[in-house]
Design a protein around this nucleic acid. Structure first.
Lengths: 153, 153
DNA sequence: ACCTAAACAAGAATAATTCCTATTTAATAA
DNA sequence: TTATTAAATAGGAATTATTCTTGTTTAGGT
């Protein structure tokens, strides 16, 4: 569950879909909400299994299609990983990922200062013929105690 | 072609394989050499097509298996990307990747100073219960002139 | 309460990767 | 060098993730 809480306002999601010019269908709402409510970077299959109980007629194809739509509309992003399947993330603010080698988790890591340090450095480097859009740091690490959460500050 | 030149010493590769406890078969040598000789982060399929002309009996399954073996032996690494296929890289030194949004290229970007800045920052952050192993920065950017190379310094 | 373009369910089709097994080969020892 | 053998390969079948197709349903604007 995302730290910010289980409940994401449905009407806000509806609004977001409309703003992107998308029909706010039941399926899209449910899938989008599911993705917003987690910090686990789920696969299409995982989202499907999660929403199925309360939406028994939803189809896996729709989950795939909806995720593609959300990505195209900048409401979600792909998170490619070493396993051969795609993961998704509805957090669109700039943040980094910690790939936990012993637990397999992908932990979000936001850090304004690090953000700024890297941006400033890249600006100072002035790579010719290149316009930097955004960046994210992938950190491979392992938990000392796999049972416990990590503690960021 | 990798900047450092087309020719990678075969006996050095053979040595590397043996050191890792791997039989230095013809197939492994050819695949490993192919991966070492490029900076293009090829897929298994691309490697297969590349080595096939001079090795007509090599099989795609062997390419997959060999890449897996190289990764397991730390002689190569996976480079997950947004398309649904895996890419591979034989550069094992710490370096970053520039994902060129308008050309689709993945450009290697090595920068000792950036390296150090990030490492120092992460050390200073002291994230509890976490031991950082390594990290790499993914930079999404577009080429101003897609025809030309970028110029790093 | 229509109308209609867009979205959906269901399942077929495709693409990437892994698995299986009979044959071949690299490395070691005689 | 030749024999031995455990490991690797070729070739193709199987599996898994994802995309595509088509007839039916639905959201959003009349």
């Amino acid at each position: 569950m995302r730290a910010s809480g289980a409940h994401i306002d449905l009407s806000a999601l509806k609004e977001a879909l409309s703003c992107a010019g998308l029909k706010a269908t039941q399926q899209r709402l449910v899938i989008y909400q599911c993705l917003m409510a987690t910090d686990k970077h789920p696969t299409a299959e995982e989202i499907f299994e999660q929403v199925r109980p309360s939406n028994p007629s939803i189809s896996l194809g729709t989950v795939y299609k909806t995720l593609e739509t959300l990505v195209d509309s900048q409401l979600a992003r792909k998170v490619p990983v070493s396993e051969n399947k795609m993961r998704y993330d509805a957090r669109m603010d700039s943040h980094h990922h910690i790939y936990c080698t012993n637990t397999g988790e992908i932990i979000d890591f936001q850090d304004k200062e690090l953000e700024m340090i890297i941006r400033q450095y890249l600006e100072s480097r002035q790579i010719k013929n290149l316009e930097v859009q955004n960046f994210n740091l992938q950190i491979r690490a392992n938990k000392l105690n796999p049972e416990q959460d990590i503690l960021i500050d």
